[in-house]
């Protein structure tokens, strides 16, 4: 029985020691930065008349933009560009899309929100297109 106690203790320790997976997801601004630069900016630079730096807008403007979820003046949604179908569609030419292929869409959306908020004109670390 001793080994069962030890195994139980280890399992309990493992579970208690795990990060708080059940907590509400909080955006990973670093991953958001990578996605913003390598997916959003790389496309904007070629197809959308030039990149848009996160510091081109205030936090409030970014929050409103992400909340409205309207991309290209409402032609489509912002969330489409973090969706799995979109990532799959560009994965062969975009390494970041391929790398993040399995990331849940809502997580990636939160990552982007966290990054643009941090990097906005009035954010904690205003950031250009890099």
């Amino acid at each position: 029985m001793k080994w069962k106690k030890i195994a139980g203790a280890c399992l309990a320790g493992y579970v208690l020691g795990m990060p708080h997976v059940a907590d509400a997801y909080e955006g990973d601004w670093k991953r958001g930065h990578v996605y913003y630069r390598m997916v959003c900016t790389s496309c904007h630079a070629v197809k959308a008349g030039g990149p848009i730096g996160p510091n081109a807008r205030t936090q409030a403007e970014w929050a409103a933009y992400m909340q409205a979820n309207k991309h290209a003046k409402g032609k489509d949604s912002v969330s489409y560009y973090v969706s799995k179908p979109y990532r799959e569609s560009i994965a062969s030419t975009n390494k970041a899309a391929a790398k993040f292929a399995d990331v849940p869409e809502q997580e990636l959306f939160e990552d982007l929100k966290a990054f643009v908020s941090r990097s906005a004109k009035d954010g904690d670390a205003p950031t250009g297109c890099r």
């Binding site: 280890c10 309990a12 493992y14 020691g17």
Partner: peptide
Amino acid sequence: WSGVMAAGLMAS
């Protein structure tokens, strides 16, 4: 129970 604690902290 330090054994539990140690296992948990190692995991995390």
